[in-house]
């Protein structure tokens, strides 16, 4: 797996770019901008569903979700660039592995929102939402907050210096 990821990075030129003078900090900055887009749209929408700023109609914030999707795509692209450039620093890293678990949780949670809650929320105006939808919003906020924390911790748990349960 490490060889495959490293080979992909070399083949596509990502490795060369990331190891250029400003490659890594530029991509890190874009990664954070993507995160802010996500948190500013999906995160604020979650907070609204939990009861903050009750005067804002849900659909006003839902219209901003495409910007959140753009942020997500920026993050996936830049994240792949980090991962493939230094795969051994990520694949065996407990903070990265935990981050991926929370991303999986956020993804499943998003699917459950669009499967079971979206229609209700779109027609709710500014009315309070039922507990099950608030639960989805709460899980989303927790998952994205954990993703931020784990992302920040990646650099402090670089293998082989830190032992972890599954490494």
């Amino acid at each position: 797996m490490i060889d495959f990821l490293g080979g992909f990075s070399q083949f596509t030129g990502i490795y060369g770019f990331m190891n250029s003078m400003w490659g890594w900090p530029v991509i890190e900055s874009l990664h954070f901008i993507g995160l802010c887009l996500l948190l500013g749209t999906v995160g604020v929408f979650d907070l609204r569903m939990l009861g903050l700023a009750k005067q804002i109609p849900y659909q006003y914030l839902h219209k901003l979700v495409p910007f959140g999707v753009a942020g997500y795509l920026i993050n996936v692209t830049t994240g792949i660039m980090f991962l493939t450039t230094a795969p051994d620093q990520y694949v065996y890293n407990p903070a990265f592995q935990t981050k991926m678990l929370f991303m999986l949780l956020a993804g499943i949670n998003m699917l459950s929102f669009y499967g079971f809650c979206n229609q209700y929320v779109q027609n709710a105006g500014t009315n309070p939402l039922p507990t099950r939808i608030k639960l989805v919003a709460g899980i989303s906020l927790i998952a994205w907050s954990a993703i931020i924390v784990c992302g920040r911790l990646i650099t402090y748990f670089r293998p082989p210096y830190h032992w972890c349960l599954w490494c």
Partner: peptide, 9 residues
């Protein structure tokens, strides 16, 4: 991210 996020929204 919280501050920038709200400003972005």
């Amino acid at each position: 991210a919280l501050v920038v996020g709200i400003n972005v929204a």
